[in-house]
Amino acid sequence: MIGLIDYGAGNLNSVQRAFETLGFKNKLIANGKQVDDSLDKLVVPGVGAFGYAAGELKRKGLWPAIKKWLKENRPFLGICLGLQLLFEGSEESPAEPGLGFFRGKCHKLASVKVPHTGWNEVEVSQRDYLFEGIKEREYFYFVHSYAVFAKSDNDRVLALTSYGGNFISAIKQGNIYSVQFHPEKSGPAGLKLLSNWSLKC
C-alpha cells in the first residue's frame, strides 16, 4: 500500500490518478497517526510554497512521522516540493527549515523565465532502477521556481537538468528517492518511472 501525503497540495489528485492508472493500491494520508505499518511506501507530492507546506506538515503531525520514516530508510518518493523539503531549507522560506535528510538548500532559479514550466531533459548521471527502461536523456515535465543546484561531488545525485545552471532533478540515498519533475504529468516516461519506483525501489 502506497501512502500519499495529503497536506493540501494542489496536484495530489494527479499523483493518485497516475498510481491508479498503473494499478498500484494507494491511500491518502492526512495526519501523522495514519503513517503506520499498513504502508510499505510513502510519497510526498507537491506544488506550492516551501514554508506553507512545511507548516502544514507540522500542523498535521506529519513532520515527525516522515522524519521517522526517512530515518528507518523505508521506501520513499518525494516529488517536486517533496524533493525540496528533504533538504535543509529554501531561499523561498528562510524561516522554515526543511527535513534535512539531504545536505544543501534550495535556491531561486536564475533563468529569465521563472517558474521553469514545461518539458526539459533529465540527464541520468547514475544508473538506477528508477530509470530502468528510460532513455539516459529523457524529457520530463517541470513546474518550479526553486531548485537545489548540483555539486559535482554529490554521489547521491541520480540525474541533473539544466535551466539557468545545473540542478538536481533526481536524487537517492538508500530507499529514499526524490525527483524535481512531475512524473505523474510526464506521459509514458513518467508512468514508467512511477512503475519502476513502485516495483523496484
Partner: peptide
C-alpha cells in the same frame, strides 16, 4: 481525460 492522460 485526467484519468487516462498523464500530461498537464
Amino acid at each position: 481525460v485526467s484519468r487516462v492522460i498523464s500530461i498537464p
